[in-house]
Design a protein around this nucleic acid. Structure first.
Lengths: 217, 217
DNA sequence: GAGTTCCTGAGACTGATGTCTCAACACGAG
DNA sequence: CTCGTGTTGAGACATCAGTCTCAGGAACTC
C-alpha cells in the first residue's frame, strides 16, 4: 500500500522544475527572442535533457511559455448598451492587445502551423478567448438573433480582426499598421451591420449554402 | 572584351540546374511533403552544396517550388453583371483553389511567418493575386465608389476569405471545413453589402478613423 | 590544343533538435 | 540507518540546416 509520492509528496519537485522552466522560457519570450531549448534550460538552471523530460519539443515549451491574457472581459467598466458601440470598445482593446504583443502572436501562429494536425489539437495554443469577448459585446443582439447566429457572427468577426488578418494586411497587402487596424475594425462593424439588416450568418444546421448574398433588396 | 558566357552561353547550364532543382522540389511538395534540402538535391541529382548555391536557405527553395496559379481571372466565360454575383463566382473558384491546395497554402503561410521582416519582403511568397481577382469581380462598383474604396474593399474581402481565415476557423473555432467556407463567403458578401448601403471602407488618406460604425440609421 | 573561367561534388564543420543510456543524488518508507 | 524510487545531469548519438574549402571537370576563347 501507501501509494508513495502522491499529491504533495515528491511530485512537488516535478512541479517546481516545470514551473521554473516555464518561467525562464517566458522571460526569454517576453524579451523578444525565440529561445533555444538549451537557452531555456540554461536560464532555468536545468539540463537540456530535463527540459525534454517535461516538454516533448521546443514547440510545446514555447507554447507553455507564452503570456496569458487572463482578462475575462474587454468591456469598459460602464459598458454601452448599443451592440455596435460595445463592439467598438471591445475591438479597441482587442486590437491594442494584439499590436502590443504582435511578435508573440506571430510566434504562436507560426507554432500552430508547424504542428502536425494531431499535435495541433493537443497544443494549448490559440485558445480563442476572443470569441467570448466578442460574444459579450454582442450580448444585446440576443433578442434579435438566435444564439447560434450570434455565436457564428462572433466567429466571423474574430476571423476578420485577428493576428492572421493583421499579418496578411501588413505583409502582403502592404497596409501600414494603423490603416490595417482601421480596416479590420471597419470589417467587423460591417459584419455586425450585415447580420442585422441583411441575412444572419449561416449556422451549422443550415445546409442550404445560405449567405451567398445578403438579402439587400 | 568579349564578355564571356553571356546570355545563351554558359549561363544556360545554371538555368538548367536551377530549373531541375525547382522541378524536383515542386514534385516533392506536390506529393505532400516538405522536402529537406538534401532530399530536393538528391531528387534533382545534384549535390547539397549546389542547392545552397542557388537558394540561400530551405525557405527560399520551397518558396520557389510552390505551385503557381497563373490564372489571370477567376470569372467564368460569361460573367454576370451584378457585383454580388460576380463576387460569388470568384469566391467559389477561389475557395475551391485554396481547399485543393490547403497543405501547400499552409506551408507558404508558415514560411512567410518564419522569415525575418527583411527577408519577408524579398520572398516571392504570398503574391496577393487574389486582390486582382476580387477587384475584377467588383468592377461594376467603379461607378458607385471611388477606385480607392473598391481597392480597399477588395483587400478587406481577401483578408476575410484567405488561408489565414480558413486556418483559424477550422483549427481554433473548430468549424468543419464546409461550414468555414460558407462563413467566409457570407463575410465577403456582407462586406460588399456594407460598402454599398453602409459606409465605404476607410482609405489611406482618411485620417478620421472612419468606419467605426457603418451608418445604419 | 592550351588556357581561363565557371560550375559542380566531396567532405568537413558548427549549431540546433530530439533521443538515449547510465550514473549520481535526494527523499520518503520501513 | 538502509533500501528503493524518482528526479536529475553528463555525455553520446543521429539528423538537419547552413557554411566553407578544395579539387576536378566542362565549356568557351584564342
Amino acid at each position: 500500500m501507501s501509494i508513495p509520492y502522491e499529491a504533495g509528496g515528491r511530485t512537488r519537485q516535478k512541479q517546481r522544475t516545470r514551473d521554473t522552466l516555464v518561467a525562464a522560457a517566458r522571460e526569454l519570450v517576453a524579451a523578444g527572442v525565440t529561445p533555444t531549448v538549451e537557452q531555456a534550460a540554461a536560464a532555468a538552471e536545468v539540463s537540456r535533457p530535463t527540459a525534454y523530460r517535461y516538454f516533448p519539443n521546443q514547440r510545446a515549451l514555447l507554447a507553455a511559455a507564452h503570456p496569458e491574457t487572463a482578462a475575462s472581459s474587454l468591456l469598459p467598466a460602464d459598458p454601452p448598451a448599443d451592440a455596435a458601440d460595445r463592439l467598438a470598445a471591445v475591438l479597441d482593446a482587442f486590437t491594442a492587445l494584439i499590436i502590443e504583443t504582435e511578435d508573440q502572436q506571430r510566434t504562436m501562429l507560426r507554432l500552430s502551423l508547424e504542428a502536425a494536425p494531431a499535435e495541433r489539437a493537443a497544443l494549448p495554443l490559440r485558445q480563442g478567448r476572443a470569441i467570448a469577448w466578442i460574444e459579450e459585446a454582442l450580448e444585446p443582439l440576443r433578442d434579435q438573433l438566435p444564439e447560434r447566429s450570434v455565436h457564428q457572427l462572433a466567429i466571423a468577426i474574430r476571423s476578420a480582426v485577428g493576428i492572421e488578418a493583421l499579418t496578411w494586411l501588413t505583409d502582403v497587402a502592404k497596409l501600414p499598421q494603423p490603416e490595417a487596424v482601421r480596416l479590420m475594425k471597419w470589417s467587423a462593424q460591417s459584419l455586425l451591420h450585415a447580420a442585422l439588416v441583411g441575412s444572419p450568418p449561416p449556422v451549422g444546421d443550415d445546409q442550404s449554402g445560405g449567405g451567398r448574398r445578403p438579402r439587400s433588396d
